[in-house]
């Protein structure tokens, strides 16, 4: 009996890792392919560029992962990002002499407030996450236009300090990469080494059992949506600083890319499972794709279609792998 158990443990481990390994392999093969087509790909400056461009998606994907682990989804992040970016941008425009940190804090606070409202609707209001965040997506987007009064905040209206947030180099590495790395590390630590972090998994893994074991499920939900809002706010700052403009339609539809990164990274949409390294890989894959299209001389208009196809393939392959594993387990069962 023990021998059989040991084997099954080994197997279940390898199945869990299979997807990660597959993803790494895919990324390697894709990179080699791109490199052959265009030797510009594997240069330091291009890789640096690629990473910088993937940072915002990665930061958001970490937040989204937590939401999805609890069994939810947040479609409002594009709007939240725009709203907080716009708030910060307007502040910088109107107060060019104020310290940059205040603008950053404003952005994050606005994002957290938006996320908190989503969390309340889901946790206390009993609204399906999809519907709640679909509705609030509209509300936040509308608010973005309204506070901007229909105008833009453009590059010359921002002081250098604010623009520097995304262009500053520390140890030769861009600040955005540092920020994303820190977000990933904190998330990893939070999810694996704190009690609350584990509760996030517990709620998604078995909602009722969480209640029975005394977890306040509502609060966990409110927490993850607030975190999601917070990282959206942070991303809003980075976005506005990087592209040096705050517009009403900033990041419209960006939530799809973020969800795609999570799904590719092995986050189960039914909740309960998902890991920070997986999400990092998923983000990396999408980043490489986006970066490589111009290198491969593919029209940028292909990007969305390719994303869509890749997400579709990823979720279907996922199901097929799971079915095969289940079938193998059934065949093993001795009857």
């Amino acid at each position: 009996m023990t021998a059989k158990q040991d084997k099954s443990i080994v197997r279940s481990l390898s199945v869990a890792r299979l997807r990660d390994i597959g993803l790494v392999l895919f990324i390697v093969i894709l990179s080699i392919f791109i490199q052959f087509r265009n030797s510009q790909f594997l240069t330091i400056s291009n890789l640096n560029n690629m990473l910088i461009n993937a940072c915002i998606m990665g930061i958001l994907a970490v937040g989204m992962m937590m939401v999805i682990i609890t069994g939810g989804i947040d479609l409002s992040i594009g709007s939240t990002l725009a709203l907080s970016g716009m708030s910060a941008g307007l502040f910088v425009r109107d107060n060019p002499d104020a310290p940059v940190i205040i603008a950053v804090l404003i952005g994050i606070a606005v994002g957290m407030a938006a996320g908190f409202v989503n969390g309340l609707l889901v946790g206390k209001g009993g609204v399906l996450p999809l519907i709640a965040t679909l509705g609030m997506m509209n509300v936040y987007r509308g608010l973005t236009y309204i506070i901007a009064g229909g105008a833009w905040v453009s590059a010359h209206q921002m002081n250098d300090g604010f623009k520097a947030i995304s262009f500053y180099n520390i140890l030769g590495i861009n600040s955005m990469i540092w920020i994303a790395a820190i977000v990933f590390l904190i998330a990893y630590f939070f999810l694996n080494y704190t009690r609350t972090g584990r509760r996030v998994y517990a709620v998604g893994s078995n909602y009722e059992a969480s209640q029975i074991s005394g977890t306040n499920v509502d609060n966990i939900q409110i927490l993850v949506y607030t975190i999601m809002g917070g990282v959206s706010g942070l991303s809003g700052i980075l976005w506005v600083s990087r592209f040096a403009s705050a517009q009403g339609d900033t990041a419209q539809g960006f939530e799809m890319n973020v969800i795609a990164a999570c799904v590719l990274g092995g986050v189960s949409i039914t909740g309960g499972s998902g890991k920070v390294p997986g999400v990092a890989l998923g983000t990396l894959l999408l980043g490489i794709l986006r970066n490589s299209l111009p290198l491969l001389k593919v029209s940028p208009f292909w990007q969305d279609a390719i994303y869509g196809v890749i997400i579709m393939i990823a979720i279907i392959v996922n199901v097929m792998v799971k079915r095969t594993v289940d079938k193998r387990n059934l065949q093993r069962r001795h009857i």
């Binding site: 009690r195 584990r198 517990a202 998604g204 893994s205 078995n206 969480s210 074991s213 977890t215 309960g272």
Partner: peptide, 24 residues
């Protein structure tokens, strides 16, 4: 009433995990 996605240890200690002084 288990948590299928979590480890055996976590299932056993769910609700009374052992934490260091700093909450780790």
């Amino acid at each position: 009433t288990c948590f299928p996605d979590l480890s055996v240890t976590e299932n056993i200690f769910m609700g009374h995990e052992e934490l260091s002084k700093t909450g780790i």
